[in-house]
């Protein structure tokens, strides 16, 4: 059996470790970034400002899911899925309405008085601080679980010779949700009247207006989509790890990086950007010594393999999205998918 022979040479253990630590982990965090970045990029395209509270909107969505979990704890057991996941559509709807409400209260008055984009950004930072304060006021600063006692977190192990490929239930749900969201968004933007109107406003707001497109409707739809996707991303992330109120700072930089890498105003670019940033992070902190060690017999003697060989120590993970961001801004400010830079 030549194939078995080949498999025997391959360091399966280490490769599976690589798959677990880089590919799957990158896909997971990349999907979360993508769900956030789509909203950021849509808001940027339509409203022309960087929406800083997006991370907090994700957290808020997850907390809505938590409250729903308290209210209807038994729902999940009835369906056989985690309760928070079953209730996620409601959390998405609530967060979408919250986003529209925030726009009404804070952004629209500024928009109507025609302030500069930079003032809109400041306003969004003000909103970010308010959301943070409220979230911590009501939820405390501790860590919570989005899994009810009745839910069990299924873990799937796929044996691949030696080590198992590990994937958990919330991770599968995250992938599924991301794919569904991407396809649905694609259909919406290319097929529906409102979706096309959104693209039109993003392309040329003045012409959209003289075509009779209601900018208010488009703006509202944008917030609904951004809020819903943010809630989905936040809830699924909280299901995968834990629910913390200070998600925002840690996640907003990679999300912006993803949106800018993908080209501002380009939803598909944001998805690709999210995955790119996610993979870059996991690749950068991966300990490459693990992959090098099996090659020990084939390497010359004088090369010593250090115990830890990562591009970036885990503590400095934050520099990865930052460097991607800076590199793109310097060399290709329109992003890899030709977004807008100005206006």
């Amino acid at each position: 059996m030549p194939e078995a022979g080949l498999l025997a040479i391959l360091p399966m253990n280490e490769l599976v470790f690589f798959l677990n630590k880089v590919v799957i982990a990158g896909l997971i965090i990349g999907s979360v970034y993508a769900l956030g970045a789509v909203g950021v990029t849509l808001i940027f395209g339509i409203l022309r400002f960087a929406h800083f509270p997006h991370g907090d909107m994700m957290t808020a969505g997850a907390f809505v899911a938590l409250v729903l979990l308290w209210m209807f704890p038994g729902v999940g057991a009835a369906v056989g899925l985690p309760t928070a996941f079953v209730l996620m559509p409601i959390a998405m709807a609530v967060t979408a309405l919250l986003a529209v409400g925030l726009d009404r209260m804070f952004y629209r008055p500024m928009r109507k008085s025609g302030v500069k984009p930079v003032v809109m950004v400041m306003t969004s930072i003000g909103v970010m601080l308010m959301m943070q304060g409220l979230l911590r006021l009501f939820a405390g600063t501790g860590t919570r679980q989005l899994y009810a006692d009745t839910d069990d977190k299924d873990i799937y192990r796929i044996p691949l010779g030696g080590r198992d490929l590990v994937i958990t239930e919330p991770q599968l749900m995250l992938f599924a949700t991301t794919i569904v969201a991407v396809v649905a968004l694609h259909m919406f933007l290319t097929r529906s009247r409102m979706g096309k109107a959104m693209r039109a406003v993003s392309d040329n707001p003045d012409l959209a207006r003289v075509s009779g497109i209601s900018i208010d409707h488009v703006v509202r739809t944008t917030w609904l989509i951004a809020g819903a996707l943010a809630a989905a991303g936040g809830t699924l992330l909280a299901l995968d790890v834990t629910l913390k109120p200070d998600l925002s700072y840690n996640i907003i930089l990679p999300i912006f990086a993803a949106a800018i890498v993908g080209g501002v105003g380009q939803p598909y670019g944001a998805i690709a950007g999210g995955l790119l940033v996610g993979f870059s992070e996991t690749l950068a902190v991966f300990n490459w010594s693990v992959l090098l060690r099996p090659m020990r017999p084939y390497l010359p003697e004088f090369i010593e393999i250090p115990a830890k060989l990562a591009f970036v120590p885990t503590e400095y993970k934050i520099v990865v999205p930052f460097f991607i961001l800076i590199a793109v801004l310097i060399w290709r400010p329109t992003g890899l998918f030709k977004g807008r830079v100005n206006n």
């Binding site: 009247r193 693209r199 039109a200 392309d203 012409l207 075509s211």
Partner: peptide, 15 residues
């Protein structure tokens, strides 16, 4: 609308 197709431009006219 530069990134939209010709036909989509016309559809936007009929919005």
């Amino acid at each position: 609308f530069p990134t939209m197709s010709v036909e989509e431009n016309l559809e936007m006219g009929a919005y």
